[in-house]
Simulated scan of single mutants.
Amino acid sequence: YEYGADPQDPTCGSDLLMKFAPNGEMVGKYTGGGLSGSGFGIAFDPSGQLWVSNFGFAGEGCTEQPTHNSVSLFSIEGEPLSPAGTGFTAGDLAWPQGMDITAAGDVWNANCQTGTVTVYPGGDPEKAMTLDAGLDQAFGVVDTGTHVVVSGIASSSVAVFNYDGTLVGGAALSGDEFVLPMGVAADPEGNVWVANSGSTTLPCPTRPISSGPAGSIALIDADGQTVSGPFTGGGITRPWGIATDGNGNVFVGNFSDQRVSAFCGTSPETCPGDLSTGDPISPDAGYAFDGLVRNTGLIVDPSGNLWIANNWETVPLQTNPGGHQIVAFIGLAAPVEVPPFS
């Protein structure tokens, strides 16, 4: 979002895409292609083209609702490839949030408003499929290399799809392991970790009332059906974004209390001491830093640095709530191998 300097001035969705160098320097700004208040979804396809979901956020007092039913596409050079003004809208996109792209170039998008999932096979909107797994507020998406996993916040459920769009096991997963889940992340072995916010829902366009326990994480094995957890501790409070490193250990961005949490993954031999899978690596207060605000997405880069988005101010005014920075924890994680573009 493009937030103004005066928090009393209402802000609407931005039409700006920013590029940063490995040292954190901003090296490019891009517009066009229907960009509109981008959501949680941003992903490169195998050829290096960049896809972005358009959630269409509007702060209180915004006089116009930005477009909220499209995705945008950019070339590797940053040129917009999707229709100007509208983006791609095929497949009943509706307040799209999370996104991931398979090795075959299939683009998967979670629709927060309808709970459905839109798939562009091979990145072709004209072949769009719309999948309904009974999710409410579909949000996070991750490709495991075998399946695609999508979280449903308000339904407290997680759908595991085969690449053809059918559900593994015939139905979405639900149970005490999932409480308002948001981000999902796959490790190198194809296991999936789920960030249970415990209390967060989204305005897409209305926001359900929510309440629950403190945040946690859960684990879905590579078979797509075996679930364990929930796991707590490590300073976890209100998890949103989640990522794994090259060892499969887990990092969580919390939307409250200015901290990152870390957990032992499915290869305990890479964890300190005698920790087991799901045990917290970070201290009880998490990895705290005053430079953090309310955090959402995070990712581990090929050098093992952890990057996290300062998404909202600690005390957000709803007219103009946005944070203004990204934060790097240098060398905190194990490097992640990233395949080259084809």
Results as ranks from 00 to 15, higher is better:
residue 3 Y to K: 04
residue 16 L to P: 01
residue 19 K to G: 07
residue 29 K to M: 15
residue 41 G to I: 04
residue 41 G to D: 10
residue 42 I to F: 00
residue 44 F to G: 02
residue 46 P to S: 07
residue 46 P to H: 06
residue 53 S to W: 03
residue 58 A to D: 09
residue 63 T to N: 13
residue 72 S to E: 13
residue 73 L to Y: 06
residue 82 S to M: 09
residue 84 A to F: 11
residue 91 G to H: 11
residue 99 M to L: 15
residue 100 D to G: 04
residue 107 V to A: 11
residue 112 C to P: 01
residue 112 C to N: 12
residue 115 G to T: 07
residue 121 P to R: 04
residue 121 P to S: 06
residue 128 A to I: 03
residue 131 L to S: 06
residue 133 A to L: 10
residue 140 G to I: 09
residue 140 G to L: 06
residue 142 V to P: 00
residue 142 V to F: 05
residue 146 T to D: 15
residue 149 V to L: 05
residue 155 S to G: 12
residue 162 N to Y: 13
residue 164 D to Q: 12
residue 169 G to N: 07
residue 169 G to D: 06
residue 190 G to P: 07
residue 194 V to Q: 08
residue 198 G to H: 08
residue 198 G to I: 00
residue 198 G to W: 02
residue 207 R to L: 13
residue 210 S to P: 01
residue 211 S to F: 14
residue 213 P to K: 11
residue 224 G to L: 01
residue 237 T to F: 02
residue 242 I to T: 00
residue 243 A to F: 01
residue 245 D to V: 10
residue 255 F to Y: 15
residue 256 S to W: 03
residue 259 R to H: 08
residue 259 R to F: 02
residue 264 C to G: 04
residue 269 E to I: 09
residue 276 S to V: 12
residue 287 Y to G: 04
residue 289 F to C: 02
residue 293 V to F: 00
residue 299 I to R: 13
residue 306 L to M: 07
residue 312 W to C: 02
residue 317 L to F: 04
residue 329 F to N: 13
residue 330 I to G: 03
residue 334 A to L: 03
residue 338 V to M: 10
residue 340 P to W: 11
